[in-house]
């Protein structure tokens, strides 16, 4: 479904060149649950950004359903992100001025849907993460775990094929982290959604199907 072929990423400044990733080969198939692990600076987030079509590799290819995607223009890439991918971030990145419901609606704003359909989908998505009673709250009125669940609801509201989670439990206590992982597992198991999760937590990584280990930008397993 989503494949990185011999992908490398070099960050260049005027004086410095940093090889963030090198020779990465990775396939994300339907129903996969992958963990990406590695020390800080090993290229985990860069890998996730490449998988999320948010960044361009400096070498190699990114293919979606067998087709090279990196030559696409901004509108097409945006459309692909909107239709195929969902993101969950460590620091939630909820829009403070919007209610929970409005936050979850964000990905649907870029689809030709009526207000009612958007609202219904957002409410259903919040129901799936157990937050039906908090739809009119604002992010600041929620606990960290609840905020991350809102972020998951936002990520899955558009029924993406792949969920990319960048340390989704990083800012949460262990019990809340456990709840978040349980939600991700359920999405993967029951709905067949592919999940790629960056994590530092070995316990959570072991519950996935496959662990990708990175060190200094290289895949070591």
């Amino acid at each position: 479904m989503l494949e990185l072929k011999n992908v490398g990423k070099v960050y260049r400044t005027e004086r410095l060149e940093t090889q963030a990733l090198e020779g990465i080969n990775l396939k994300v198939r339907p129903g996969d649950f992958l963990a990406v692990m590695g020390p800080s600076g090993s290229g985990k987030s860069t890998l996730l950004h490449l998988l999320g079509l948010l960044d361009q590799p400096t070498q190699g290819m990114v293919e979606l359903d067998g087709r090279q995607v990196m030559d696409h223009d901004d509108v097409t890439l945006s459309h692909l992100r909107n239709e195929m991918l969902g993101f969950v971030f460590q620091s939630f990145h909820l829009v403070a001025d919007l209610s929970v419901l409005d936050n979850v609606e964000i990905p649907l704003l870029y689809r030709p849907l009526s207000n009612r359909v958007r609202r219904d989908l957002a409410l259903r998505s919040l129901g799936r993460v157990g937050l039906s009673s908090r739809v009119h709250h604002y992010p600041s009125q929620l606990s960290g775990g609840q905020q991350q669940r809102v972020a998951i609801a936002r990520a899955i509201v558009g029924s993406p094929r792949i969920l990319l989670a960048d340390e989704p439990t990083g800012n949460l206590d262990s019990q809340t982290g456990e709840e978040i992982i349980a939600i991700l597992e359920e999405l993967n198991r029951k709905e067949g959604m592919s999940v790629v999760m960056v994590t530092h937590d070995q316990r959570f990584a072991e519950r996935t199907h496959r662990i990708i280990r990175l060190f200094d930008g290289r895949q070591i397993n």
Binding site: V75, S78, F87, P107, Y110, R154
Partner: peptide, 10 residues
């Protein structure tokens, strides 16, 4: 966030 979830520059 908007960019990640599909907002184009336009």
């Amino acid at each position: 966030i908007r960019r990640a979830f599909g907002a184009s520059a336009r």
